[in-house]
Design a binder for these strands. Structure first.
Lengths: 172, 172
DNA sequence: AATCTTCTTGACCGATTGGTCAGCTTGTGT
DNA sequence: ACACAAGCTGACCAATCGGTCAAGAAGATT
C-alpha cells in the first residue's frame, strides 16, 4: 500500500481513505480486468460462422494481452491461488458467459460449420493461448532475443494462433 | 519459512541449516519443476513424424499438469514476475532446448509432414494449452460443476487438445 | 460569517516476516 | 576415551506489513 501510494503521489493514509482495505482495492483491479475481457466477447456473438467469430475473438484477446499484460497477470495470479477474492465472479458471470458461448459453438457444430470438438476445451485453449502472450510475456521476450515482440511479430503470433486453431477445429 | 518448517516437521532454524535463505530453497523448487519438464521432451526427439512426436509431448505435458499442478504454478508465478530468480535458466537451458525443438519441427515442415507454421509459436501454444490445466485448474474445476476433472474428463481434455492442434498444423 | 461535511496528513501500532546466534546433542574418526 | 565436526534448537532481532487515529485543511451549505 505504501508503494502504491508513493506511485500515485499521495500519503498512504489518504489511499486508505478511498480504499479501506488492500483487498478492496485489489478487488476493483481484478474487476476491471474481467470487464475488459467480457467486452471482447462481443466479437463472438454476431458472427455468421466460426472462422469469423472465433477469429475475431482471438484478435481481440491477443490485443488485450498486448495492451493490458499486467491485468492479465493479476487475473492469472488470483486464479492460481484458488480465486480467494473473486470466486463469486467465477461461479456467476464467468460460468454464465461460458455456458452462452458453448451454446453458440455447439450450434456451429450442429450446423456442420466446424468439427465436433468439445466447446468447453476449445474455450480453454483460446484463453490459454492468447493469455500466454501476456502472462508469459517475459519468457516470450527472452526467447525473442531478449526483446519484446514488435508490431510485426505480434501480427505473426496472431496469424499463427488463428491459423492453427481455426484449421484445428475445421473452420477453414 | 515458519510454515514450511512446520509442515516439514522441524524447527525453522533447522530448515535454515539446510537452506541458508528462502531464495535458495525456492530456487531448488523451481529447478526441479524445470527438470521434470525437460524430461517430458524425450518423447519429442525419437518420433518419426509430427503426429507421433507432438502427440506424445502433449500427453506428457498434460500428465505433468495433472500430477504436479503446484509446480506448474510456481513456474508461472516466477515467469510472471519477470523471472527474478531463474532468468539464467531462461537464457541458457530453455533457450537451447527451444532452438533444438524448433529445428526438429522445421525439419518436419521441410519434409512436407506438416503445414508451414512458425515452430516457435507452436511451442508457445503447446506450453500454454497444457499448462493451462494446471495453472488455471481452479477455474477449470469451477466451470466443471465445482469438481476437479475426473480421469475420464482428463482423457477428453487430452484428446481435444491433441485433435485440435495436430489437425491445426496439418499433421493428421 | 458560521457550521458541517469531506478530504488530507504525519505519527503511530500490533503482527508477521526472513534471518541470526550461542549453545546443545549426536555422530565419526583416532 | 577423546576430540572434532555435523546436526539441531529456542530465543531473539531488525525490517516491513496493512491498518488506525487524532487533528488539521479545504469545500459546501445556510
Amino acid at each position: 500500500m505504501q508503494l502504491i501510494a508513493d506511485i500515485a503521489g499521495l500519503p498512504k493514509a489518504n489511499l486508505h481513505y478511498y480504499f479501506a482495505t488492500k483487498e478492496e482495492l485489489y478487488r476493483r483491479v481484478v474487476q476491471e480486468i474481467f470487464e475488459i475481457w467480457l467486452d471482447a466477447a462481443a466479437s463472438f456473438d454476431d458472427a455468421p460462422d466460426p472462422a469469423t467469430g472465433i477469429g475475431a475473438y482471438i484478435d481481440a484477446k491477443m490485443e488485450i494481452s498486448r495492451r493490458h499484460p499486467n491485468g492479465s497477470k493479476v487475473w492469472a495470479s488470483e486464479v492460481m491461488h484458488g480465486a480467494p477474492v473473486i470466486q463469486d465472479y467465477l461461479e456467476g458471470t464467468l460460468r454464465d458467459w461460458t455456458d452462452g458461448r458453448i451454446a453458440v459453438i455447439q450450434a456451429w457444430i450442429d450446423a456442420g460449420q466446424m468439427a465436433p470438438i468439445d466447446p468447453r476445451h476449445l474455450l480453454y485453449m483460446l484463453w490459454a493461448t492468447t493469455q500466454h502472450y501476456a502472462d508469459f510475456g517475459h519468457q516470450v521476450a527472452t526467447l525473442n532475443f531478449g526483446r519484446p515482440l514488435s508490431n510485426a511479430e505480434w501480427q505473426i503470433a496472431k496469424d499463427n494462433v488463428k491459423q492453427i486453431i481455426l484449421r484445428g477445429i475445421g473452420a477453414i
